[in-house]
Design a protein around this nucleic acid. Structure first.
Lengths: 217, 217
DNA sequence: CGCTTTAGATACGCCTGCGTCTCTTATCGG
DNA sequence: CCGATAAGAGACGCAGGCGTATCTAAAGCG
């Protein structure tokens, strides 16, 4: 999007965009604004500057800045599949290794612009029920469903104990990653992912447990 | 503090406070401001109004609003003991029941004014290393230590497997509660705590596991 | 080309808050 | 009581942003 956006915006500066083309540019700019300055500091002025358009053009389409922000988030947020969080897992991959892959994917998302958007909107959601519902439906529910599907696959393969297939267990990985990540601007080390997988996920979900098993990979 | 603050502030309105007394009132007001409007919307104007004092009196002591906010948080944040998160656990209480008690205590804190402060400052911490360090040292580290102590006690009683005594495992309960709580303004139901304890904590930390055990209490 | 519609630039009134400054006066101690 | 100090009230310049309004002109279509 960046490179393409660069090309388009050069042409855009030479001529005026209209209709859907302008809307797309505004939504892109709004998502970038959300990502870079967060929900609280999100401003229509900022979006207008990013999109090289006038505020009036924005207000002709979205009556308030909140509606613009929400639509930008809804329309531009990558899906779980796009993030690698709901992968099509080959047969030869164990559940633990698939979970390790999901952990890496969640980490990548949380460190991406989309992650910045999620984080800042989540913070606002604590005080705004509309945003809370948006985050839950658009972001958390699909990802929880993907995690549950992975756990069920594990049960079918005899790798996961059936009692572990619950929404609460499905939340453990994202909760821990978020918990660890929110105070750190450094990349989550592979070691942290290993700790989570070995110290928490394997003991928690595995059918049999004597001591943490060494991952096959 | 509320009732006492009511008495004191009546006298305060009749005469000028000086020195430490005024500082205390300002720090109280700052903590209330943080709790009610969050870190982002925290304003020195707001604190001055709450404390019934002039802005100049505040700026005489704290050069920036950030320093005031940080000191208010540091000085007014209840300790883990005050929250019931590092309880002196009687001998007859099992680790699981102690954890259930800690879960309730964490929940109470997260729903209290202090919880509102933590949440809002944590959100800001994502972009501010100074705040990140403050939150980690003043808030998360003591609580993680208390949780680790509880797990070690469990090991000594033969209830907890020794490999479960890690900072990552210690983070599971707070991470899940925060994850669940941040999008909900409703009280965390006792059922949610039960889910966490039975679906996650018991399977994760217990020495022996065949199927989830019924809690003793 | 002419007409209609919309885009972009800019100005506007209003509001909030930061940090600074000034002035009056309360408070404290000798 | 007097002098020194600090508190409280209010004003100030500045900045940023919300949402609205106006005007010029680009864009599209017949």
């Amino acid at each position: 999007m960046t490179a393409a956006s660069g090309e388009v915006s050069e042409l855009a500066l030479a001529r005026r965009r209209r209709g859907a083309e302008l809307e797309d540019a505004i939504l892109d700019a709004a998502f970038d604004e959300l990502s870079e300055v967060g929900y609280t500091s999100f401003s229509v002025e900022g979006v207008a500057a990013r999109a090289h358009t006038g505020k009036a053009s924005i207000y002709r389409r979205w009556p308030t800045k909140a509606e613009l922000a929400c639509e930008a988030m809804t329309r531009r947020m990558p899906t779980p599949s796009e993030c690698g969080i709901a992968p099509a897992v080959p047969d030869e991959v164990t559940t633990v290794d698939a979970l390790r892959g999901v952990a890496r994917a969640i980490t990548r998302v949380l460190k991406s612009p989309a992650g910045d958007v999620i984080r800042s909107v989540k913070c606002e959601a604590a005080a705004d029920p509309t945003l809370a519902r948006l985050i839950d439906e658009e972001f958390q529910a699909p990802r929880r469903a993907a995690m549950l599907a992975l756990l069920r696959r594990g049960v079918a393969r005899g790798e996961v104990r059936p009692e572990a297939v619950t929404p609460m267990v499905a939340d453990v990985l994202p909760a821990l990653l978020t918990h660890r990540l929110i105070l750190s601007r450094e990349p989550v080390a592979e070691a942290t992912i290993t700790e989570i997988v070995e110290q928490v996920l394997i003991p928690l979900i595995s059918v049999q447990r004597a001591s943490p098993r060494r991952p096959v990979g």
